[in-house]
Design a protein around this nucleic acid. Structure first.
Lengths: 117, 117
DNA sequence: CAGCATCCCTCTAGATACTG
DNA sequence: CAGTATCTAGAGGGATGCTG
């Protein structure tokens, strides 16, 4: 089927859908980026992640991880042991996000002027 | 006026370890990325930005723009005319963020099923 | 046109206690 | 160790009305 073009409608007038929105939806969350950042370095257990994100409570960490799971960014591997052991790692989709994390980190380092601290 | 931050105290130790945190602080805000995205394409007036961010109210748009100004991401140019005309554009720091926007947009496109209507 | 002031209300981070 | 369940607080988005 041919594309529908609108006569006389200059491209400037067309509202461009913002493709960063999907990315934003996935990383919107107090601890999401920190979690993804650490998991991009290596697989981590639940307790390790809690230490790496100082101040986060178990409940919140669980919820953020579940949401990242739902978004297929993070894989959860449960070892049937006592005491329990659970390892979190990046899925292929999560790994594909590493370049984004890297450039965000790079940019963040360059502009680390805190205006109000 | 306060910048848009997540609830709770920013984990101070984490700032050194996780460099994405600074970036996160700047783009944390319901409309920040959308605004930056459109400004990366071209300079826009206040009213244009409001149309480009469907659903945003004047008050919120003003607040998000002020915070981006405070973070030196956006420049505000006021023309002393009647009726008033205000143009927003990216500062050098804001322009340096374009690669981040691009890769976020690229990644977002790849991992979203856009309703094609 | 481009704001600002004000109130409201949702959303979710955070705290705490309990469990397999 | 790695969760779950429940409650609360408050940050911040949203709506409305007014103004230069």
């Amino acid at each position: 089927m041919a594309r529908t073009l609108f006569q006389g409608e200059p491209p400037e007038e067309q509202i461009e859908v913002c493709p960063v929105t999907e990315t934003q939806n996935i990383i919107a969350g107090r601890w999401k980026l920190i979690i993804l950042w650490h998991l991009s370095k290596q697989t981590r257990r639940f307790g390790e992640l809690q230490k790496l994100a100082p101040g986060i409570s178990k409940g919140i960490l669980t919820r953020q991880l579940r949401e990242l799971e739902d978004d297929q960014m993070v894989h959860r591997e449960v070892y049937k042991e006592v005491p329990p052991k659970v390892e979190y790692s990046l899925t292929p989709k999560g790994k594909s996000f590493i370049p984004v994390l890297d450039i965000m980190g790079e940019w963040g380092k360059k502009h680390l002027n805190w205006p109000d601290s």
